[in-house]
Structures are given as structure tokens and as C-alpha cells.
Amino acid sequence: MSDSSSPERLLEQNVFDEWPDAARTLFDGSSLASKTGFTASLLTVDANGHVRTSLLGAGELYAPDSRSLCVALWPQSRTARVIGQTGRAALTFVCDEAFYQVQLRLTPLTRVTGDDSGLVYLIGSIDTGEAQSVRYARLTGGITFELEGDGKAVLDRWERQIEHLKQAAAAASR
């Protein structure tokens, strides 16, 4: 991790190619109920130069190791289609009082037995990541949400999705 800040600079920028501890904990697939409300933006650029965004929660993101991220997407989403063509995306989120932007190279994962979710699973390696913060303001959150209705059903679905991401990531590493 490098720090491009100096005493004169207000912007602190850390560049990384491995998940910092706070981000790795966020994407470890555990304690999903405590991570409800967290939102990350997965951004792609299509052939026409249009930016496409999918908003993802903690139940759709899993880091199997310090340099990778698994993602669960609906196959009909524009973001999934663009990733299928380019293999590239950027993930942005707020964590540990900093704004993160992580450039990812993504490839499909094989479906796991018993998964009837219809989701597409991808695994991405970190091309480069940046965490930015400023000394005069503290980021307290990014895009957040509250579950409506049967929140337990969503958490149960997330648990299954994370388990499928873990199985697919493990099968890919063999």
C-alpha cells in the first residue's frame, strides 16, 4: 500500500492490489445481518461509452482471498452483459471512512450443484484499487438501504448466495 499524501496535501490516497483489512472484513461473507444497508456500485462502460451501474449488497459480494472478489448478478442486467463482453468493471463503495474504487478483471464462475437462483457468478481479480479520504471531512456512509417487508427472507437468500459464491470460488481455485 502506498500513501501519496504529504503534510501540505489534504487528500490522502492509498493505492492497493490486495484488500485492506476493513474491506476484506466487509466482503468475508460472514455476519450478513450486521452488513445490511451497505451498498457498493459495480460500474461498467458499454460499447457506446455509456456507464452502467448495478447496486450490490453484502450478500452479493464475497472475497475468497486478499486479491479477488466474487460477484452475484442477475444475468439480464446490463452490467452483467457488459462484463460478459469486456471482462472489466469498477467497484466503488465507502468503508472505514474512505471512498474506495477498485478496478476488476472478471471471468465467469461455474454454477454450483443445487443452485437454482438464476444468478450469474463472476470472480474478479484486483487490477488496482484506491482508497481516498480527506483530513477535513470524515465519510460516514455511501449509498445505503433498509430492507422492507420480510427482511429475513432477503438475509436467507443472501446466505445461500454467499454459500454458492464460496463453493464456486473454491471449485475455480482447484
Rank of each mutant, 00 (worst) to 15 (best):
F93A: 11
E60I: 01
P108H: 07
Y136W: 11
V15P: 00
G84W: 04
I143Q: 09
S31W: 02
T140F: 03
L165I: 10
R81Y: 02
S77A: 11
R138D: 07
G129M: 05
N14R: 15
G151A: 12
T107R: 15
G37K: 10
L73I: 07
A23W: 00
S77N: 06
A63D: 01
S68D: 00
Q167L: 15
S68P: 00
R9T: 12
E8F: 14
Y136M: 12
A90C: 13
T128E: 13
A22E: 11
V120S: 13
G87A: 09
S30H: 10
A72P: 01
V94K: 01
T113C: 06
L165W: 03
S173Q: 14
L139D: 03
E97D: 13
D3L: 13
A131Y: 02
A33Y: 06
P20E: 06
G151T: 10
V112C: 06
V154F: 12
V45R: 08
D116C: 07
P20Y: 04
L104V: 10
G49P: 04
T140M: 13
A89H: 06
G49V: 09
Q101H: 06
P7Y: 02
R78A: 15
L104Q: 03
F99P: 00
A58W: 06
L43P: 00
R111D: 14
Q101R: 12
Q161D: 12
D156V: 11
S77Q: 07
L42E: 02
S66M: 08
L32F: 04
N48C: 07
L43F: 04
V94F: 05
S68C: 03
Q161G: 09
A58Y: 04
T53Y: 02
G87K: 05
A171Y: 07
S125T: 14
Q167R: 15
A169E: 08
A153E: 14
F99E: 08
I126L: 08
K35M: 10
L109W: 09
A40C: 07
V45T: 11
F38I: 05
F93G: 02
Q103L: 12
G114T: 08
S173W: 07
S68E: 02
T86A: 02
G118F: 02
G129Y: 03
R174G: 12
L32R: 01
A72C: 05
A89K: 04
G84Y: 05
S34C: 05
L106F: 11
G124W: 03
E148S: 12
A98K: 12
W158V: 01
N48A: 15
E97S: 14
S66P: 00
L26I: 01
R135I: 04
F93T: 13
L43R: 04
E148Y: 11
L119I: 06
D127Y: 09
L91R: 06
G142D: 08
S54G: 09
G141A: 13
L32M: 05
D28K: 05
S30R: 14
A90I: 12
L11C: 07
T44V: 09
R174M: 09
A89G: 08
T39F: 00
R78N: 14
V15N: 10
F93D: 00
T110K: 13
L42T: 05
A170E: 15
Q85P: 00
R52F: 01
P64E: 06
N48G: 10
R81C: 02
Q132G: 10
F27K: 00
